[in-house]
């Protein structure tokens, strides 16, 4: 079986300074993988190269059977990469409904299904995104990515800075998405919640894939070494 997403030996630079030194990562259809590592280790950079917001230098990135090198960002998105970016970034002056419609592409995900996943969004459908709470904006950002009917949902720090109750709500939704068979790549720091969702962990350290394995293979010792927990 070929992987839906495959990165091998990916390097990337910010100007002259190298951020990624060799990322290997593969994700099969229907799988949920957690990308982990301490701050500044290259998690977000890895995601940026996958989503073509940044060009990689060496190595290979393949998604859905296509080489992503030099592919513009919007084309990669059209192949089925649905990104929920760090810091949410909804279209502040558009309403909830408008945010979702703007992103919509035909498929099984539509407004009703997003509203079913996040009932709070349905209640606030005509409210401007800028008036939503942080948690609701996060739900909207996830909903917007789902409206593109992605083959792979990428969540970058989806619950950062949110209240515990809201975090639980969002993790429950992510779990539901996983159960429905959606392929998910998730970046987060909270091992506890990740262990409930992910099938496998990929740990990056200093821009290199340092460890990869099933969830139950991550021992306390390894967690302490790579994640400092």
């Amino acid at each position: 079986m070929t992987a839906l997403l495959e990165l091998s030996g990916v390097t990337a630079f910010y100007g002259a300074s190298q951020a990624l030194f060799g990322i290997d990562l593969s994700l099969n259809e229907g799988e949920a993988v957690a990308l982990m590592g301490r701050n500044g280790m290259g998690k977000t950079t890895t995601i940026k190269t996958i989503c073509r917001m940044m060009e990689h230098r060496d190595g290979l990135i393949r998604f859905a059977g296509q080489d992503l090198a030099r592919m513009p960002s919007h084309k990669a998105a059209r192949l089925g990469l649905g990104l929920v970016p760090e810091g949410r970034r909804c279209f502040a002056r558009l309403s909830v409904m408008e945010n979702l419609i703007a992103a919509a592409r035909p498929g099984e995900w539509d407004f009703d299904r997003v509203a079913g996943l996040f009932p709070r969004l349905a209640e606030r459908r005509d409210q401007k995104a800028m008036t939503l709470s942080g948690g609701e904006q996060q739900m909207l950002a996830i909903g917007r990515a789902l409206m593109t009917n992605p083959r792979l949902l990428i969540l970058d720090e989806a619950t950062e800075g949110l209240a515990p109750v809201v975090r639980q709500e969002i993790w429950a939704a992510i779990n539901q998405l996983k159960q429905s068979g959606l392929t998910i790549l998730v970046v987060d720091k909270s091992l506890k919640e990740l262990s409930g969702v992910a099938d496998r962990y990929v740990v990056v350290e200093k821009g290199v894939t340092a460890w990869t394995g099933a969830v139950n293979e991550l021992t306390d010792e390894l967690a302490d070494r790579y994640l400092g927990v």
């Binding site: 989503c51 919007h74 408008e98 703007a102 992103a103 917007r144 409206m147």
Partner: peptide, 25 residues
Amino acid sequence: IRSRFGLALQGARQNPQRMTAVGIA
């Protein structure tokens, strides 16, 4: 301006990179 096209146009003003990430240039 209320159509998907119009919303995308407004979205592209507010955050062009986000618009790209949902597949719209």
